[in-house]
């Protein structure tokens, strides 16, 4: 029998994550001989980032993707936000590859939440800085800076570094930086490029403190209702989309960084500078550790050893 699955995303139609969704849909159609059709709804038009997990778990939506960290108490979902856990994008990709320890553990946790991860998609660098008038290199540079933050661990990290985290909707960032309401914002280089933040923030610091990983979660009951052959096809398509997204996100980040160089100053942190930041950010691991279980902690060690 034929099945149609609705797949919701939160990023704009022009974003590579949306291309990844479309690629996934195409791969599924090929691998199932058209038996499973995936309809893609990008840019949050169906559900906003925060509603997607509920929509998937309740069965109102078949597949949805969003940052792993946006909503649950599971410490494993926040793993991506641990500062400098991943040395670079390739390292992060290795850690999240389907079949690896991390992905398998994540799949087990999500089963309790009534969801089936089909794979993950790579957003790219998520934790760089677009600043109005200063590069952030030494710890003193953070002193008193008002910086737009996202998520709990990022805010915690900012506080430790000596800055004030500020909350605002993404649409407000541009003007807030331009007018000096905030000194800058945490976001990935690709967003600094696409949201034109460089017009307001002349100083880009490529810190790569964290990488964005979007989980492609499917409603578990819906997944189980599919034939074994189709299940396998979905997982294969998920893996191929993952592999594509890794290369694509690295290429895009590279391209955005080059572009930003033509528009303002770009500072790329050296490994030593990253180490100096990481040394200070230890408390973020401690507070995460209080919420994590033994398996989560073992995963961190496993990732570090990769």
């Amino acid at each position: 029998q034929e099945v149609t699955l609705r797949y919701a995303g939160t990023l704009p139609a022009s974003h590579h994550m949306t291309d990844g969704q479309k690629l996934f849909a195409k791969l599924v159609a090929e691998k199932t001989g058209g038996q499973v059709k995936v309809e893609v709804y990008p840019s949050g038009q169906l559900y906003k980032a925060h509603d997607i997990p509920t929509a998937v778990a309740s069965g109102a939506l078949d597949i949805g993707d969003n940052l792993t960290n946006v909503w649950t108490a599971d410490a494993i979902s926040e793993l991506n936000d641990l500062p400098f856990l991943f040395r670079d994008a390739r390292h992060a990709a290795k850690a999240w590859a389907p079949g690896g320890q991390l992905f398998e553990a994540y799949t087990r946790k999500m089963a309790k939440r009534r969801m089936k991860p089909l794979g993950v998609m790579f957003f790219g660098s998520l934790f760089d800085f677009s600043m109005r008038d200063r590069a952030l290199v030494k710890l003193e540079d953070f002193k008193g800076a008002k910086i737009r933050s996202y998520g709990a661990l990022a805010s915690e990290a900012l506080r430790i570094l000596g800055a004030s985290p500020v909350t605002m909707d993404p649409g407000e960032m541009y003007l807030a930086i331009q007018s000096g309401t905030i000194d800058g914002a945490i976001t990935g280089v690709s967003s600094i490029d696409s949201r034109k933040l460089w017009e307001a923030g002349k100083e880009t610091t490529v810190a790569q403190v964290a990488f964005g990983v979007f989980a492609m979660n499917m409603n578990l009951a819906k997944f189980n209702s599919l034939s074994e052959k189709n299940q396998k096809a979905l997982l294969e398509a998920g893996r191929e989309a993952f592999e594509w997204s890794v290369d694509e996100s690295i290429a895009r980040d590279q391209k955005s960084t080059e572009f930003l160089r033509t528009k303002g100053n770009v500072t790329i942190l050296t490994p030593e500078q990253k180490q100096a930041w990481a040394a200070v950010l230890g408390p973020v691991y401690t507070s995460w550790g209080k919420r994590a279980d033994a398996e989560d902690k073992a995963l961190v060690e496993w990732v570090k050893g990769l």
Partner: peptide, 22 residues
């Protein structure tokens, strides 16, 4: 009501630093 139940199953907490059970 089912939303609140589901939220407990999901273990959903707020994105902010308070991590309030949603």
């Amino acid at each position: 009501i089912s939303f609140v139940e589901l939220s407990q199953i999901l273990g959903a907490v707020s994105v902010g630093e308070l991590r309030i059970p949603l």
